[in-house]
């Protein structure tokens, strides 16, 4: 096994155990791993931003232009320079007197973002999802008992959507009939939360499985080999 891979496995195993040691109680090993993690993630975010955003989209584009002829170069790269300038304006937030300048790029981002996303989101979620809710309240013809759920399921969806919408109605006090519908809404919400929670337990356990498998299949053989127990 190459040295770098060997070293990688030992470091990964050590940090995994250090982080899991928190389950027993807070200790210096956990603190050490925690601080390393915080530092590395900050550095990682910076590297990702540099190599995936700033370097390919700004620096390399600027270097590509022929700056011996500055006028032509400016015309060729204005689509890069203008957003870069807007980005630089964001740093004005660090100076309290000039912090208002940062509103210009924010306005640009929010304006363009809302302009693009509002119609698309209305189409993709409001219209499509609402229309997917519609269902006939009485079947056209007699349904076999085996297919009864095909008719009932859409009605449950209709009831769920309406009752949850009413639960989130804040303009009037929820009393009498409204309270009952809103109570049905809570039941639907809780069922969703339960299902979601079940799914998430599965997700979190998957992460533990990933780590434990790493320890057992990658790291443990190294120890057995070290102790001369390996085959």
């Amino acid at each position: 096994m190459p040295l770098q891979q060997l070293l990688g496995i030992w470091i990964a195993a050590g940090l995994t155990l250090a982080i899991y040691s928190f389950l027993y109680k807070d200790n210096p090993a956990y603190k050490f791993a925690e601080h390393i993690y915080v530092g590395i993630t900050a550095g990682y975010a910076l590297c990702t931003a540099w190599y995936n955003v700033i370097e390919p989209n700004l620096i390399s584009e600027l270097l590509k232009a022929n700056w011996h002829n500055p006028f032509t170069a400016l015309i060729m790269t204005w689509t890069v320079i203008a957003p870069a300038l807007l980005g630089i304006l964001m740093f004005s937030r660090f100076f309290s007197k000039a912090s208002w300048v940062s509103r210009i790029p924010i306005a640009f981002v929010i304006g363009a973002g809302a302009g693009i996303s509002v119609p698309n989101t209305v189409q993709a979620y409001l219209i499509k999802h609402t229309s997917a809710t519609f269902a006939p309240l009485i079947p056209k013809e007699a349904i076999a008992w085996s297919n009864i759920m095909d008719f009932i399921n859409p009605l449950i969806v209709v009831l769920g959507v309406i009752s949850v919408l009413i639960y989130f109605f804040f303009s009037i006090e929820q009393k009498n009939g409204l309270k009952t519908v809103s109570w049905i809404g809570i039941i639907f919400l809780m069922i969703f939360f339960g299902a979601s929670f079940g799914y998430t337990v599965m997700g979190r356990v998957s992460l533990v499985i990933g780590r434990v498998r790493f320890l057992i299949t990658d790291w443990f053989p190294l120890i057995t080999n070290l102790l001369g127990l390996g085959s």
Binding site: A124, K128, H129, S131, A132, V157, F192, A195, S196, Y199, T200, V201, M202, G203, S206
Partner: peptide
């Protein structure tokens, strides 16, 4: 998707997106 995200995808499945 991760299991956490799965329930949130069902409305899109129902809407055939």
């Amino acid at each position: 998707c991760t299991a956490v995200m799965a329930p949130g995808n069902y409305p899109s499945l129902q809407a055939k997106q």
